[in-house]
Nucleic acid binder design. Structure first.
Length: 306
DNA sequence: CCACTTAATTTAGCCGTACG
DNA sequence: CGTACGGCTAAATTAAGTGG
């Protein structure tokens, strides 16, 4: 509302500039009205407002029709330029070109996802989006608000429920497998329940609080096992299991990664352990952003053939 | 103090019509 | 024929009141 001495506040009706453009293009109030979808009367009123705004008649009647004043001639160029720029800005379909885009994405994940998805994601970035960087960070309780504010673009993990305003897409259905070292002295071609419960186990427990799915399932059957090693880190666990007689039960895709890195065999667990699924989650704010859609697509693609 | 209704004022636009 | 203007309506803004 500031009526400072600066005549032009942003409080002027910018539609009048559209009117201005139409009037000078048509040289007629009636045709200009048709052009912008107003009645002749409304256009006349608009011209009136324009005259007080510019403080100039803009168009004057002559025997040869309405002709622009010098002031109008002088203004039309810059105004058309501005309108064209506005139109280009507003109407442009925002697009994302991975090949040239320079930006980074922050993804909140867990170890599991980093191990399974990130290697191929980074490969993909190298080939498809050489200037796009990735920031993987652990997910925490701030994650939701971080996604709302845009500090974090995407969360991937065990997220069966999400707050209102967030979208969720299933990425991976996972089950469990066991790994033991090659040439294990006890484990044969198959891992039976007796062997499984009698051998010492390793357990990956990020928070060191023990008890995973395996112990719950065994307990339901009145069975138990000895967890000889609890360790928070995946890779160290694999390394140790490859050199000991420990049995390690992990998600199947992790088992596959381990077997590529260490001298390990993958065995089917002797008990039904069920599974879990991983989802990617994002805030509705990002739902239509082309860059974000692209990122989600990449994750979905990589997860599909993982 | 804030959120929500309701009343008053302003504004854009349409119609009909006067006027050049 | 085409523009300008008065009258009128609907929508948007603002102001004022009301209840929690």
């Amino acid at each position: 509302m500031g009526h400072m001495h600066s005549v032009h506040l942003a409080s002027i009706d910018l539609n009048l500039l559209v009117v201005f453009d139409a009037l000078l293009a048509e040289g007629s109030v009636t045709r200009a009205a048709a052009r912008v979808g107003l009645s002749q009367s409304a256009m006349s009123h608009a011209l009136g407002r324009l005259r007080t705004l510019i403080d100039d008649p803009i168009l004057v009647r002559t025997p040869r029709g309405m002709i622009p004043t010098p002031r109008a001639q002088e203004l039309i160029g810059p105004i058309r330029e501005a309108l064209a720029q506005i139109e280009a800005t507003v109407a442009r379909r925002p697009r994302f070109d991975p090949a040239t885009a320079r930006r980074s994405f922050a993804v909140a994940t867990v170890d599991y996802v980093e191990l399974i998805l990130l290697p191929r994601l980074v490969q993909k970035l190298f080939t498809d989006a050489p200037f796009v960087d990735l920031i993987a960070r652990p997910y925490d309780s701030d994650m939701w608000s971080s996604m709302e504010t845009g500090k974090v673009d995407l969360a991937i993990g065990l997220l069966p429920t999400v707050p209102a305003g967030f979208y969720r897409q299933r990425l991976i259905e996972e089950h469990y497998m066991c790994v033991v070292r090659k040439n294990h002295p006890v484990v044969g071609s198959k891992l039976n329940i007796k062997t499984y419960t009698s051998l010492p186990h390793a357990l990956i427990s990020p928070r060191g609080d023990g008890g995973g799915r395996v112990d719950e399932v065994l307990a339901e059957r009145g069975l138990s096992r000895r967890v000889a090693l609890q360790i928070p880190h995946f890779l160290v666990a694999a390394h140790i299991v490859a050199q000991t007689d420990l049995v390690l039960t992990v998600p199947a895709r992790i088992a596959r990664v381990f077997a590529e890195m260490e001298a390990l065999r993958i065995m089917k667990p002797p008990v039904e352990l069920g599974g879990f699924s991983l989802d990617q989650v994002w805030h509705e704010r990002q739902a239509k952003d082309p860059a974000h859609i692209w990122l989600r697509g990449i994750f979905a693609e990589i997860a599909r053939d993982s």
